[in-house]
């Protein structure tokens, strides 16, 4: 029962090339608008990193792209189809071609690793158990978790949980992969391992990858293109090099890790987070 959303301008033809195209996207939580008209495209096979600080709206953007939040305005075109105007069956069909790896892994705690990875296959395909078993072992091998089939998620370390989550996201051989903070909470060595894995997936499968992160080192390693979100708007959109060399103050502040001016009043803090009024500056 998805209803077609009315965008601010008359909607144009669906783009033929890009895997994902976002036009004038607006998202609200209740009365508060979090994203104020986002526009960007991701080409097929490209890896896009969405950077931003806390409160920038990057998690909201990711959640909207995978259908967990409804836009209040604008359009999302995925593989040439209008995401918001699809019927439920079409939406399900599209979701089966996308995979998402959540920040904490979001593995189902009551099932083993193998059952977690097998779940999409068991629910969406008519494959028999022995085939599913082979596919699960294949995916676990791809992420470096061979032999951990019968472990429960609670028995895994943080890095291993992420890998298992990636294996599950890969179960249906998706065309688009989404990562929410893949390095969050991991020590640098393990985080580097996850970056390696993402690069490996990029090279081997040429999938379109969208990563939300605030870890600059990882971002520069894996990105073909980056966008920087600040308070719900895109302030930069380009190759890693272009962002690195940008002279814009907000971009420089993010890249050079310059701390925010001291916010000492509660009202200023709230305004900074919601982006209603710029914070006081010296």
């Amino acid at each position: 029962m998805a209803t077609k959303l009315v965008s601010q301008q008359p909607s144009s033809e669906p783009p033929s090339g890009p895997a994902i195209a976002v036009r004038n996207l607006r998202v609200k939580y209740g009365e508060r608008e979090i994203l104020h008209g986002i526009n960007f495209e991701i080409a097929a096979g490209e890896t896009l990193v969405i950077l931003g600080g806390s409160g920038s709206g990057k998690s909201t953007l990711l959640r909207t792209l995978v259908g967990l939040e409804r836009p209040s305005g604008g359009e999302i075109w995925i593989r040439g189809q209008d995401f918001a105007a699809m019927s439920e069956d079409e939406r399900d069909g599209l979701l089966k071609k996308m995979g998402m790896s959540f920040q904490g892994g979001a593995l189902f705690g009551s099932m083993s690793v193998a059952d977690n990875v097998a779940l999409p296959l068991r629910e969406h395909t008519e494959l028999d158990e022995s085939t599913i078993d082979i596919m699960v072992r294949l995916k676990l091998d791809q992420v470096g978790l061979s032999g951990f089939d019968n472990y429960m998620p609670a028995q895994l370390s943080g890095g291993m949980k992420k890998r298992a989550a990636i294996a599950r996201a890969l179960a249906m051989d998706p065309e688009i992969l989404f990562f929410d903070e893949p390095s969050a909470g991991l020590d640098p060595i393990i985080a580097a391992g996850i970056d390696e894995l993402i690069l490996k997936l990029k090279k081997a499968f040429r999938i379109t990858i969208v990563v939300v992160t605030h870890e600059l080192a990882s971002a520069f390693l894996i990105a073909d293109r980056m966008i920087l979100l600040d308070k719900g708007v895109i302030v930069a959109n380009g190759t890693p090099r272009e962002l690195q060399e940008s002279k814009q103050p907000r971009v420089r502040q993010f890249m050079d890790r310059v701390p925010e001016a001291e916010i000492s009043r509660e009202l200023d803090y709230l305004q900074m987070l919601t982006g209603d009024i710029p914070p006081q500056r010296q």
Binding site: R63, G67, K96, F102
Partner: peptide, 12 residues
């Protein structure tokens, strides 16, 4: 644990 979200993104 975002497991409900995970179900939805898997079209379940």
């Amino acid at each position: 644990n975002e497991e409900i979200d995970a179900l939805e993104t898997m079209a379940l």
